[in-house]
Amino acid sequence: MTSILLIGESDEHGEVSQSTLQAVAAAKSLSEPNITVTFSGDAPASASSLSVDSIVSISAVSNSDDGIYEQSTAEIASLVTSNNPDVVLLSKSDFGSLVGARLAFRSDLSFAADCTELSNENGALVVTRPVYGGSALAEFIVASTPAVVTLRAGAYEPSTETGSPAIESIEPQSIEQFAYVTDTVAETRDGVRLEDAGVVVSGGRGLGGPEPFSVLKDLANALDGAVGASRAACDAGWIDHSHQVGLTGKSVSPDVYIAVGISGASQHMAGCSSSRAIVAINKDADSNIFKEARFGVVGDWEKVLPSFLASVRELKA
């Protein structure tokens, strides 16, 4: 049996997040899984029909408790001590990355971050994680348990099975807190969330400046999609960093990912390679993006994009 403590998260609508459903699927792929899902704060209502063994809510702590999750880390650390699971599974979200690492080092546990595959081999846990920006994959045997594992978004299809887990609630403890969030400044977003969009239109250094992003915006609007960008475009200040797709930006998996003037560096592809179809517009036929794309046009975006946009509008009319 593999006992798994899965750290759940809720989304902005108060539902079990897609990344948590993906983690449930990953947990279920292990041998004879016994899965407890815990939520920092009250569990979302939809958690009560998850196909897992039990749900534990740590009441009165919200997912964003102190903003940097010091309370959550302390709560989950005590749960790990009392439950002694084989695997502590988190999503590689802002929450999961921070809490996972702190937990592992606080309790001297094994830690594998940003994994794309979990399995059991001869009783041991085996994890696969992309390394070198995604240029390579590394497979590890986890020598000692409990092991803390964070899971990359999109690595597993979300679990759709239902069940009736036992439900429990525990009281939070009081902790000593060091750092305090005094303010949160949110980027304003118009239209669909990048992570949820069915179509993403991304621009890179090849656009040459900030203005062309308005053409990408028009295209995204015509397709009910969202605008993304490479790190090079964000670092240049052409568009806000909240649009960055990639290893250190957002992970997206739309039906169509349109990359304009993006070379397809492994660190960029790490954020979009689980898209259904990648479409590339790039003037360099040797560019790496054409090794990853399903459809492509070799050409100057300034000539290709206007007619593409016009045709899309006609087709959509």
């Binding site: 903003g67 940097i68 802002d94 060091f178 750092a179 305090y180 969030v181 005094t182 303010d183 949160t184 400044v185 949110a186 980027e187 977003r189 909240s242 957002k250």
Partner: peptide, 9 residues
């Protein structure tokens, strides 16, 4: 994810 926090420590 979509902005920043101000933190004192």
């Amino acid at each position: 994810t979509d902005g920043y926090q101000e933190i004192t420590a």
